[in-house]
């Protein structure tokens, strides 16, 4: 059975589907956590403390990293197969077939953008929070301010006061939106939980999830950016 997960086309896709589902669940969790930062920066920091360098958080991070890694490596593996299967000679003329989404045909490219965003995000936040703690530190100096590893809210406030981060993060979320519109219903298809009645529903669910994720994440970015622009009117 283990062999089928690495060798069979359907086995490999099953791995993509399961890791994908896991990542989607994580993203939804992360998004809810972020929303707390809008309502209550203190509440958010409480969560940050809870998810610091504790053993369970570290274990979670490791599993998460593994999920991302497997999802990424399998994507590369499948893409290499597919590239070979396509043959050397390509069509001179191609069109997008009716009913076929742009995202579905560009998942790898979108995936790379998502990954790039992830690296930026790790640099901006994770390196200054969990990583610092793991290395035994308690705070880091960011743009001249010293920010405690457990003060996620301050880190958010600082990062999204910079217009270029705002743009980069919004682009990242947009890429994620595309990735999820195809990925979410696709994982149901891959494990076989789909049929003609459910396609419209699954695609609707996928769009709703993708849009929620986009709005949820973007809200934090936008709210904090606005706060940084005019602290008075936002009451901060």
């Amino acid at each position: 059975m283990s062999c089928f997960l690495t060798k069979s086309s359907l086995g490999k896709k099953l791995v993509m589907s399961i890791t994908g589902a896991f990542l989607v669940l994580f993203i939804l969790f992360h998004m809810s956590m972020n929303l707390t930062a809008i309502l209550s920066p203190d509440g958010y920091n409480a969560i940050c403390r809870f998810l610091g360098a504790n053993w369970y958080a570290l274990a979670g991070t490791a599993v998460l990293a593994l999920g991302v890694l497997v999802h990424f490596l399998y994507a590369l593996m499948l893409t290499v197969d597919n590239y070979r299967a396509r043959g050397k000679q390509r069509y001179a003329v191609t069109v997008t077939e009716p009913g076929v989404s742009w995202a579905s045909k560009n998942m790898l490219v979108i995936g790379f953008i998502v990954l790039a965003g992830l690296l930026l995000h790790l640099f901006n936040f994770w390196a200054k929070m969990q990583l610092i703690e793991v290395l035994g530190g308690h705070a880091s100096v960011v743009g001249g301010h010293t920010i405690a590893a457990t003060d996620g809210a301050a880190l958010i406030a600082y990062t999204f006061s910079k217009w270029y981060y705002v743009i980069l993060y919004l682009l990242w979320f947009a890429a994620l939106w595309f990735h999820l519109t195809h990925g979410v219903w696709s994982m149901f298809q891959t494990v076989g939980w789909a049929n003609d009645t459910w396609y419209p529903r699954l695609k609707c669910i996928a769009n709703v999830v993708a849009t929620l994720v986009f709005l949820g994440f973007a809200a934090v970015v936008v709210v904090y950016f606005i706060k940084s622009c005019c602290p008075c009117c936002c009451g901060a």
Binding site: S9, N82, S101, S104, H182
Partner: peptide, 12 residues
């Protein structure tokens, strides 16, 4: 043959 990525181009 390659791996299906559920684009749906085939059914179209």
């Amino acid at each position: 043959f390659g791996n299906c990525t559920n684009t749906g181009a085939c059914q179209a």
